[in-house]
Write a protein that binds this DNA or RNA. Sequence first.
DNA 1: GTCGTCAATATCGTCCGACGATTTCATCTG
DNA 2: CAGATGAAATCGTCGGACGATATTGACGAC
Lengths: 220, 220
Amino acid sequence: MNAPTTIGTTEKVADAIRSGIRTGQFVPGQHLVEAELTLRLGISRSSLREALRHLSGDGIVAIHRYRGAHINRLSRREVRDLLEVLEQLVRLAARLGAASGHANRGLMDAALEAARRHGEDGDHRSYIAARQAFYDCLFEVAGNQELPRVTPLRRADLFRAQIRPYQTRAQQDSHTDGYRLIAQTVNAGNVEEAEAAVAALFAQTRAMVDTLPDEAFDVG
Amino acid sequence: MNAPTTIGTTEKVADAIRSGIRTGQFVPGQHLVEAELTLRLGISRSSLREALRHLSGDGIVAIHRYRGAHINRLSRREVRDLLEVLEQLVRLAARLGAASGHANRGLMDAALEAARRHGEDGDHRSYIAARQAFYDCLFEVAGNQELPRVTPLRRADLFRAQIRPYQTRAQQDSHTDGYRLIAQTVNAGNVEEAEAAVAALFAQTRAMVDTLPDEAFDVG
DNA sequence: GTCGTCAATATCGTCCGACGATTTCATCTG
DNA sequence: CAGATGAAATCGTCGGACGATATTGACGAC
């Protein structure tokens, strides 16, 4: 992939912030004060600023000159645009994965794990981790190295964090079912059904977004 | 978009490097020594490193710990993967643009300009600029803010820089014709033909890649 | 009481210098 | 010529400094 040989401070800081978004330690819209973060993370401003610049490229934080960085908060329209792009890329991954003919044991495992994690304790963080593992497997089966690089999954994490308080249990169960169906059809090598499964998952997500109140989104 | 209110040193440096790739000042595979760049660009190491970190996120430069940054040089496989992803996103843009019903004068203008720039003096730099303008217009017509954010056009510039010495005039003429056809079909609101035009353009590019010698690519 | 003006403060952007860590390269040795 | 070795080059991280700008709060006018 694009990962350096060994990880450095910048990557660790970026991971810490990404992880913080999943745990709720950082909330979309939150202002990130450099002095405070350097203290909390025990690093220098240089490293922090490099990490923020990196995250800015992923669309996770926004940097405004002389006003600093803040965790991005997506508007309803940005979420719609994001889902539209995301769907195309995941469809491509599913298509390539199904066409590859190589069934992947981990793919279904990850899908099931996501469902289990969610069902058991409702721990959102481990659910997100399992979801990430699912996509990692999907990209691996697809065999396209560019896909994980451009797919805005991290940005989708922002969306997940924003809508979390409004999501019902049934909605999330239905979502993990979608993962299972994708894993199943991809492993079966059924290209058309795999794409259809992805389309169905995103259609469902879009419908869910439409039901959410305006407070869940940034003013756009 | 995601642009800060005003541009800072980091953005200027990143633009300088991107522009340098287009002009041939920087060549794929080239090692970027911090001390030299800070002198040449008249900036501090902090700003340079932030810019490099930003470019690293776009896949333009790669950073290896204690070995510094270098301009990425794509392998044949990376190019194939890149084109595959790029095609999906451009197809989405063409589809959305055609479906929007809003004909865009600038789109065709940009396509024609690209052809003219190329035909007149063969100045690769202005050709690339016109090509960028074409995609900017396409994204604007598409009306999806996430598209320009994820579409790896900058990375495609790397590819263009690598294959430049091997491209024939006829191939490039044919390519600009492809832009024209896309602009025409999108402006006409013909969704299916617009997508077909994009597919044709990428099929052509893929075929061209297959004819190139191994020396044009990084060892993969 | 509300509004606008203006100074004080907080925060950021950029630069500079420092030092250990690691790679790279030229040299030496067998 | 291969491998060991030491010196040089380069990077990663830190800390401090200072001007630039945004934000805040006090103050007075109406």
